[in-house]
Design a protein around this nucleic acid. Structure first.
Length: 124
RNA sequence: UCACCUUAUCGCCGUGUACUGAACUAGUUUCAGUAACUGUUGUGUAUUUUCGAAUAUACAUUCAGCGCCCGAAUCAAGUUCGGGACAAGGAGGAAAGUCCGGACACCAAAGUACAGCAUAGCGGGUAACACCCGUCCGUCGAAAGAUGCGGACAAGUGCAACAGAAAGCAAGUACAGUUCGGCUGUAGUGAAACCAGGUAAACUCUAUGCGGUGAAACGUCAUGUAAAUCGAUGUUUGAGGGUAGUACGCCCGAGUCGAAGGGUAGGCGGUUAGAACUUUUGGGCAACUAAAAGGCGAGAUAAAUGAUAAGGAGCUCAGUAGUGAGAUACAGAAUCCGGCUUAUGACCUG
């Protein structure tokens, strides 16, 4: 399956996202928080994922874009951790809770940790 | 004026699948020309070889195949679905603030007057403007030049520091004259005094312009049930409501028939080829404009345009130098244009 991150695997439905905030569970590894929910997806994929950075913490659109890109990139490289082993289909949303600009190493490390936590919970 | 560059690896987004012209009109799909690919087709020519033929190669023509590749539906190159390959492309000068001006779209009601708002030397440019150009005047400057909310005190109303009795609607100092009436003159204060002036980033007046709502507009497709909605028809008193404020005016409003709406912030269109850009020539002091030629380079929608690594350029600091260290601005398209304002790095020039 490789390292691609095509459109089908992106969380796009507004309905699902709202449901995610209301009913979803979460794990976190500061500054990354992962909200997830086991649910039916519109396509035949295991996981749909999205990223979000609150406007409150980062007013500049350029900075928000940068953080979202870092998170997307990190998820793309590490999604093999959870993609094939999970049971059922999930909606993911990664939130960035920090207030400082991160670099790729920091995002990658913590996003990986969050994925590991999710996997451990899901296996039990 | 430019908006760091190059390479490698891994990704994201939409587009295309040789080109050109026409027809049919929306379709199980037409025609012509040029170019390219494949070949156990046929024919011809040339060359090689040979006594000759066959063979081989090249070219021309004909035929068949292919329609970027694979799979499925199908009489499919063209239509639909899924997967892949390749190609070219993929944020800005301000994309920002949303402050003006338009294009475009819609409206139960958009009309008239008043009110309100905007603009303000004069002339020109423009689709339009509060923008731009020219010019006059004022102010600043030695000059080059910079800068200006620069119409009107003619009508009405208001305001005016200090000085002064008084800057109005009422008072009044000193001296002199006198037809004895606070009638006249002079002095004193001040920029200005029983007389005019100043002031319109004071009300006001004049001239010109202004319906409202914004792409979450709007159109359309799918699903499809009641009040309400839309269309047609239509009646009497017209309650009541609406039309940004007021007045007039205008519109809706019973019933019947037909259609399909709500929600799912669903899909598609609108949507990116334009009052655009570049070059040349003509017109104009200029803003700008006319003609010709050329190419076309983002289209996302929880929102693509990237991430990582290495090297280099310019910049700053240190150093004689080789070199070393540091930082790499402001900032992210969202219907599209013309401006203005604000933020901001480097270089060149006056």
């Amino acid at each position: 399956m490789g390292l691609s991150f095509p459109k089908k695997e992106k969380l796009k439905s507004k309905k699902l996202i709202e449901q995610l905030f209301v009913e979803g569970n979460s794990v976190s590894s500061f500054p990354i928080k992962l909200i997830y929910l086991q649910t039916k997806l519109p396509f035949e994929v295991a996981i749909q994922a999205g990223v979000s950075v609150p406007k409150k913490n980062f007013k500049s659109a350029v900075k928000r874009n940068r953080i979202k890109r870092l998170m997307r990139e990190s998820y793309r490289l590490n999604k093999a951790l959870v993609f094939n082993n999970s049971k059922g289909s999930f909606a993911f949303l990664f939130l960035y809770l920090g207030k400082e600009m991160p670099d790729f190493t920091l995002v990658d490390k913590n996003l990986k940790a969050a994925l590991h936590k999710f996997k451990k919970l899901n296996d039990e």
